[in-house]
Structure formats: C-alpha cells, structure tokens
C-alpha cells in the first residue's frame, strides 16, 4: 500500500512537471527549425534569431516594454513598501481598512475589469484636465497600480516577521526613526524588496490585457505586438523571440534567487557571530 501510493504520487508529480515544461521545450526546439513551416523539420538553424534584429516593430515594442517595466516596478516598489510599512507598523489610522482593501483587491480583480475602468478614468481625466495622454504614461500608471499590490503583500510578510528589537535598540542609542528604519529595517526587508521588484518587472513585461486598454495609438508594448502576430497564426520569429524571453527571464530569476540565498546566509552568519 505504502509503496503503491508513493509510486502514484511520484508519477503524478512527474506528469505535472512534464505538463509545465514540455510546451516550452518544444517551443525552443521549433525556434531552431530552418523551415518556416511548422510541421516540417528543415534542419537546425539560428536564422530566426537573426531576423529579430531587423524587425523594427518588435525592437521598438521591446524597448517600450522594458522602459515601462523598469518605471512601473520602481514606482510600485516605493509605493508598495510605504503601504507595507504603514500596514505593519501603524496599528490604527483613518483609512487603514480602505488601504488594506485596495492593496488586496487588485490581486483578485480580473485584468479586463481593471483595464476597462482605468481606461475610462484616463479618458475622463483627459476631458477634465487634458492629462494624461494615452501611451507610455498611462501604461506605467496602470502597471504601478497592480504591481503595488504584489510589493505590499511580499514586503508586509517580511516586515511582520522582522525583529523589531534591533530597530528599538538603534533608537535607544539615539538614532532618529528615519535613520533607524534606513539603517536597520531596510536591509532586513531588502530581499523582499528585490524579489518583488523582479516579480513586478516580469508581470509588467508580460501584461497584455491592461496595456491594450489603457494604451493609445502608436504605443504598442511587446505583448501587444506578439498577441496580434500570434492571432494571425504561428510565426517562426515569434518562436525565437519567445525562447529568448523565457530563457532570459529564467536565467535572471535563478541568478537572483541564488544571490539572495547567499546574502541571506551571510547575514544570518553575521548575526550569529554578533550574538556570541
């Protein structure tokens, strides 16, 4: 019974992982297919990667997406960390419940609803105060909104488990609250801030639905271009592009995870040494 159930668990685990990975691996395989026909293997070729560099539309969209992702995740990290500090450190303040709700709601709101309502806001604002023009600005504002929620949740968890006695000790020794926060608390929550910045970056880079609604003429992000190309059918250069993106993101995430683990281990070691 015990052996049979272990075997069952193991095979479901393998099946699940296979479901998650086979499509990506097949996609990467197709990206090296010399033939533009999807059902014919025309030999190994890196030609499709070469054509990417000459596709102005894709390059411009990729540049816009990167600019949006960097701006949005940086803005979200600032706002989200502030919100997390407010929610963890200030037990009572007017608007606390409202802030909690607005931080959690974007996580469960269907993107399509957020996208429509934000577009209606931007259109109405344009009529009232002639700002913002739909394009880069509106996409960044929309992305900051949903990214802030992810930052707050991540930093909140870290901050709640952080030891407050260090910060209090610093303040007993004469540090102001701002200085105590910057020198003691910030380094402790730094891993959460870094990982939520990365999460926001990938979420922003990937967003199709919200960007499609709030964007204006002439501002197409990479997912918008990819979506319109994919809608028309499979295209081999998109295979190459997708493989590049998936591998780049995967490598960055693995490297960041490894670096953060190392930094965390060193910090723990220093803490232990300091205690001795």
């Amino acid at each position: 019974m015990e052996r049979r159930s272990s075997l069952f668990l193991l095979s479901v685990l393998c099946l699940g992982i296979a479901i998650l990975y086979i499509p990506i691996l097949v996609l990467i395989g197709y990206s090296f297919n010399a033939s533009p026909l999807v059902n014919v293997w025309g030999g190994f070729s890196t030609a499709w990667y070469g054509t990417l560099w000459h596709n102005r539309q894709l390059l411009e969209a990729a540049l816009l997406s990167l600019e949006v992702a960097v701006s949005a995740s940086s803005g979200a990290v600032v706002l989200g960390t502030l919100a997390a500090v407010a929610l963890v450190r200030f037990a009572r303040f007017p608007g606390r419940l409202l802030l909690t709700g607005m931080v959690n709601a974007p996580l469960v709101m269907p993107e399509i609803i957020t996208g429509i309502t934000q577009l209606l806001l931007f259109v109405s604002m344009m009529q009232l105060i002639s700002w913002p023009h739909r394009g880069f600005t509106t996409i960044v504002l929309a992305h900051v909104t949903f990214c802030t929620a992810y930052v707050t949740i991540t930093v909140q968890a870290r901050l709640a488990s952080a030891d407050r006695s260090l910060e209090e000790a610093a303040m007993d020794l004469g540090a102001g609250p701002a200085r105590a926060f910057l020198e003691i608390t910030l380094p402790i929550i730094a891993p959460a801030i870094v990982s939520s910045w990365l999460l926001c970056f990938t979420l922003s880079l990937d967003d199709l639905v919200i960007s499609s609604f709030v964007s204006g003429p002439g501002a197409s992000t990479l997912p918008m271009v990819i979506y319109s190309k994919v809608k028309l059918g499979v295209s081999p250069d998109i295979n190459a592009l997708a493989s590049l993106i998936v591998c780049a993101v995967g490598a960055v995430i693995l490297a960041a995870g490894w670096l953060m683990k190392r930094a965390e281990r060193r910090r723990r070691l220093e803490m232990q040494l300091a205690e001795q």
Partner: peptide, 17 residues
C-alpha cells in the same frame, strides 16, 4: 519557474503541442 515566465508566451507555446 513557469509562474515567473511569460503567461502569454506559455499559452502560445501550448499551441505548438
């Protein structure tokens, strides 16, 4: 790892299967 990589591209990748 798949959760971090692009949602749109993963849906597209499924089409290949």
């Amino acid at each position: 790892l798949p959760f971090w990589t692009s949602f749109l591209l993963r849906v597209y990748a499924l089409e290949g299967i």
